[in-house]
């Protein structure tokens, strides 16, 4: 077998594996456009005959057959919670990451380790005390309560990523800027921030995705349409007597689309951030 043939075979094999990875997702996307009737038919219908946006209309309460699940509110809650907690977490995390990247102080490495360890606490284990404390303080079942929690769980990872990106910016650039007449504050915003910008953006998107996809904590800390997020809302479908597969699929598509777009935007920086944070100590 020649080298060219072998390369071709590897290419085909890789292609098939990639296809296999995509199939579950694509199947859900396809189902989102099919009516429940067709999904439930026995024997199975393989070639879709009836594709439409009816499921999407239904879950947003627009079509003829209305689904009693307020997906619109969930979407709004998810958006508000994820965006707010991301903005706050990145601000806080960036400041912490900068401190770790630029300053030496006693106890630095153990401080770093403890911050990272706080991230290892399983969501469900953390949800128990938070559930009680949030009930006492009235934060339970509010967007604010979830935002605070998500900010905290996003801070350690944001610190990790931004620390790596700031360390890549040579220290003497900030010094040069200060000699050129900048205050330390100006030097940060005019020189260091622009250079770490893409990394910070990817840290932000990572934080956003974590909040957007989180389930274990949200499922315990939210109860009503005022605060339930999309992943929690998805479970509403399973609580009903018969599962509305088509509606669930449509909602799944709504959850995945923002995540999909954002991940494509930052894939390169994300990999860079994850690896140099770990390898080039």
């Amino acid at each position: 077998m020649s080298r060219g043939q072998r390369d071709f075979l590897i290419w085909v094999a890789t292609f098939l594996v990639m296809l296999a990875i995509c199939i579950p997702g694509l199947w859900v996307v396809l189902s989102a456009f099919r009516p429940n009737g067709e999904i439930l038919t026995k024997p199975a219908v393989w070639i879709p005959r009836d594709l439409s946006f009816d499921n999407f209309r239904a879950i947003f309460g627009l079509g003829d057959n209305v689904v009693g699940i307020p997906v619109g509110s969930y979407f709004w809650n998810s958006a508000v919670i994820s965006v707010t907690s991301t903005v706050v977490a990145v601000t806080i995390g960036m400041s912490g990451g900068y401190a770790f990247a630029r300053y030496r102080f006693p106890g630095k490495s153990s401080a770093f380790l403890w911050l990272m360890l706080s991230r290892t606490v399983p969501g469900i284990a953390l949800s128990l005390p938070l559930f009680i404390l949030w009930s006492w303080t009235g934060l339970i079942d509010t967007k604010l309560g979830v935002i605070i929690v998500y900010t905290a769980i996003n801070v350690p990872f944001t610190i990790w990523l931004t620390e790596g990106f700031f360390r890549q910016v040579p220290r003497d650039l900030s010094e040069a800027a200060q000699i050129d007449g900048c205050t330390p504050w100006q030097a940060f915003w005019k020189v260091e921030f622009p250079l770490a910008k893409s990394g910070i953006a990817s840290a932000a998107i990572f934080a956003f995705l974590t909040s957007w996809n989180e389930y274990a904590l949200a499922s315990q800390l939210t109860r009503s349409t005022d605060s339930k997020t999309l992943p929690v809302g998805l479970m509403d479908f399973t609580a009903q007597f018969t599962i509305d597969w088509a509606g669930m699929s449509a909602m799944a598509v709504i959850i995945i689309i923002p995540a999909l777009i954002l991940t494509f935007l930052v894939q390169k920086h994300l990999i860079a951030g994850l690896t140099f944070g770990g390898v080039k100590g």
């Binding site: 601000t91 806080i92 995390g93 400041s95 912490g96 900068y98 401190a99 770790f100 630029r102 300053y103 102080f105 630095k108 401080a111 911050l115 706080s118 606490v121 953390l126 005390p129 938070l130 404390l133 605070i148 929690v149 900010t151 905290a152 769980i153 801070v155 350690p156 610190i159």
Partner: peptide, 20 residues
């Protein structure tokens, strides 16, 4: 550096350490 780290430490204290 302590001032820069303070917000991060604070929120983790409140949301993770205190509940734990």
């Amino acid at each position: 550096p302590l001032a820069l780290l303070a917000p991060a430490v604070m929120i983790i204290l409140v949301v993770v350490l205190l509940p734990l």
